[in-house]
Design a protein around this nucleic acid. Sequence first.
DNA 1: GATTATTAATAGTAATACTATTATAAATAA
DNA 2: TTATTTATAATAGTATTACTATTAATAATC
Lengths: 226, 226
Amino acid sequence: MIQNIQIQLNEHLYIKDPMQSDLGKAMLEKSVELIYEIGFEEFTFKKLSIDIPTTEATIYRYFENKHRLLQYLTNWYWSAMTIEYKYLTNNIKIAEQAINTGISLMINPTKFMPQHPMLSIEKLFGIIIKESTKSYLTHTIEEDNILKIFKPYKDFCNVLASSFLVYAPKFPFAHSLASTCVESILHQCYFMQHLPSLTDCKNITGTKSLQTFIQHLIFNTLDKNK
Amino acid sequence: MIQNIQIQLNEHLYIKDPMQSDLGKAMLEKSVELIYEIGFEEFTFKKLSIDIPTTEATIYRYFENKHRLLQYLTNWYWSAMTIEYKYLTNNIKIAEQAINTGISLMINPTKFMPQHPMLSIEKLFGIIIKESTKSYLTHTIEEDNILKIFKPYKDFCNVLASSFLVYAPKFPFAHSLASTCVESILHQCYFMQHLPSLTDCKNITGTKSLQTFIQHLIFNTLDKNK
DNA sequence: GATTATTAATAGTAATACTATTATAAATAA
DNA sequence: TTATTTATAATAGTATTACTATTAATAATC
């Protein structure tokens, strides 16, 4: 586990860097709690300002809108996950083992990621499961992409795809499989909680069945293409 | 292709059945066009009322809110898809062939689904790709689920899962694989259009590469469990 | 033709998303 | 030390959104 690493994020995500002031840090901390509790649609800067406490206008001096704040949080998450994955697989020579580590990390980020003094990884994971697709399923996707807003998410998918290619160098769909796995894990977690008939995985005993399913998906697909 | 089938939808989706009046039908037709054009976040009943034309309050007499209207459209889509899948695979004895039909249908609904006098399947498919997850990633998920709002989506996943089980009766993750495939196809379509580095599939030549990827995913996973 | 029921429009309100301007505090220079 | 600049936050707004109570108009039935 890595500690005390300041994650440098895309400066288009904020107007004023929230990490540079106590008030900004409070915005991040409280926004994670509030979005986790009431959901992104119900979340407003007015409500956040009451929790901090500060004024609505002050939050607007840090973030363009609530959407950018969500992108800030998802960027932080995927940046941290990429660092953690690289760290965890650093001395692993066997590709299969690296991939399994990646699956475990994605399913149980709280077990692997270091505790953060400000951001609750558990709540952040909950936000990633429920809200993260809303950060790119928007009408501003093209502009945001030009600003490199989705780079951390792409980076994570890319390091995962690279591990797939070490295991099966001729596999022609490494990137598609990586993004499918990332999204599938998040979806299956959501379905386990809220729409259990859409999954065979159970929440009990540490989500071991989800791990098995994703292993099936990845290794059976890759084995035919080794 | 099936034609002239009136799809009966869950009555909790609307206050007044939009299919029972010309004004209601105009709401459905114009909402598909408008959501397709400007996206669900920018879509409001006020804007829709100008397009129809009618008043905002009148639309509220048909739908509780814009969220229910989105759920109405996604329910219509998955109901129609389930009917179409059952029709297309009706006389197919070979499970592999049925599954391949399902994949084709999901990737190219416009090729298989009958033209609809009111709803543009092409635009509706675009809405499904970009907006459909927003119909269940909400804080009202539990209440909505009790009202059986997600039944058509579950039904489609279930018929797909059933085909998987005909092909590989011992496979323990048929439902997870079905929901993963459905979501993966929609995601890969979105990534092809907007974030191509997250996929290996290309939009050109009729999305054949996506078909190949999903076939890989399904059959390699199922083959090991036959 | 009168009564009842259905449906749509008018006219609102509270909350949301945002911004221009002012006030306050901190940092630096004279 | 005081004056000046700079950075930061609060005040006080506005336009839009989401929604509703009430009234008006139309159609159906007695």
